[in-house]
Design a protein around this nucleic acid. Sequence first.
DNA 1: CGGGCGTTTGAATCAAATCAATTGGAGTGG
DNA 2: CCACTCCAATTGATTTGATTCAAACGCCCG
Lengths: 277, 277
Amino acid sequence: MFNVHAATATAPAVSPLPSVPANALRARPLATPAPKRVDAEAYQRASQQITDTLAVLRDTLAPQRRVVHAGDIVHSAGEQFTHLFIVNAGLYKVINLTPDGREQVVGLKFRGDWLGFDGIAGQQYTCDAIAMDTGEVWMVRYDALLASAARQPVLMSLLHEAMSREIRRDRDSLMAVCTLPADARVADFLRDWADSLARRGLRTDQITLRMTRAEIGNYLGMTLETVSRALSKLAKQQLIGFDGKGRRDIRIPDVAALTAFVQDCVAPEANGGVTLQ
Amino acid sequence: MFNVHAATATAPAVSPLPSVPANALRARPLATPAPKRVDAEAYQRASQQITDTLAVLRDTLAPQRRVVHAGDIVHSAGEQFTHLFIVNAGLYKVINLTPDGREQVVGLKFRGDWLGFDGIAGQQYTCDAIAMDTGEVWMVRYDALLASAARQPVLMSLLHEAMSREIRRDRDSLMAVCTLPADARVADFLRDWADSLARRGLRTDQITLRMTRAEIGNYLGMTLETVSRALSKLAKQQLIGFDGKGRRDIRIPDVAALTAFVQDCVAPEANGGVTLQ
DNA sequence: CGGGCGTTTGAATCAAATCAATTGGAGTGG
DNA sequence: CCACTCCAATTGATTTGATTCAAACGCCCG
């Protein structure tokens, strides 16, 4: 893990394509600490956008609503693909399975996310989607969705954007697993969770993980002991705090500090920060 | 890495949903060595399907063709999203970037794959797609594609299936990185590559990696030295062989043996195989 | 022929997994 | 209410797999 070797060690190769230089993005200065108010506005906008999107879907599709409780299976691997599911409320884990018996949490879904995209290609779902809490999903027959979308282009856009976002997010997960050490991965996981909540207009200073350490570890590619140690370390540095009786309620006083911690793991000497071990 | 702790340690929770039991798929016997002829037929069918799909896309979209050479940039992160790209020939790497400067190969694309899905959501690409060899991509304006697809539903299906496949594949990558030790990951990488070739009607006993060890390692989340060691180990066990002058032409006498090697890494004692170290 | 790059291989080090012991709640039943 | 069990979580000791550091080799190309 934590590979420092360069990835793109290929020849410069003058490109005939009408595109910006390969390293246009890399050339920009690192660390982009945007002002806090802008973030707050952006989050509020994102939250409103999710609400609006759900309203459109509800009004144009009149989806079948289904209330779920912790442990309920929304769809499972091997099952015939018929529906896509839109998360209106609750929290869901997506579990992938391999023929040889390995299984892993490969995604977590919140309000506004969709479930079941993996089923489109092969006519059957290739993973389990399980509710981790009481919630509500909207069921939409895929063929009905296509029919509606043919008449209402906005529906098609929403669908494509949701799939596109999922592809992006999966890639980010892969990157986190491949390029961050265990501590940073846990920190990034919490940061990401808080961010997901923020973009849905929820408070981020207090999050409730509805997962065991084993599940978190499975998601992040490490053992439960390593997760526990990482959390303890973050707590010792005051980056997180444990609230309530159990150790699943986590307080995040400053999300930006978590981000900084991740940064520091990536480039320890770059930042002038004191590495208080 | 190589987490053995159970992921789904949640309460059984009787589900009101009309779905198969959670562990219906897991209960089935492991190891599914399908007869070889069936595989060959399936591969041929897959190959024909890709060819047919490309023919449909060519005929209905009349896409702009673009010849590329090794190192050419198909699209790059930050660039305005306008086109999707369909790979007609060649091999491409997809490189993801983070604001803090990390970069990673997050995907490899072959004939029939699409490029650029990540750009749909935010109106700009979030990664670089770079040709690793001479090839040809077909450029399709996204808005034009939507317009055509509105009239030709088959186009829409092809698009959605391609996106769905990508989501699946990304999840499988994540699983390989999270649940397999380094040696197995390299073996799985080669097996997957051979499989990709086979499904495109190409020979699999002889593959040419157009990547450095550093790039392979970056893709698989390990260092170049570890990749090299893993390859040497596989070669020592006759699972692969080095052809030609350089060490990038790899001969795979028996793809099934590679699969068995991966299996054996996952469940060493389960299989009655002799663990010839 | 010599320099540069990619690759291999060995030895030392380190981060994370494994093994093991203990703590702490939540739930159950006397 | 308390004793009991069960499971999640923490923490420590040890092992191990992968990284890091280092050296050498082979190939391509000027």
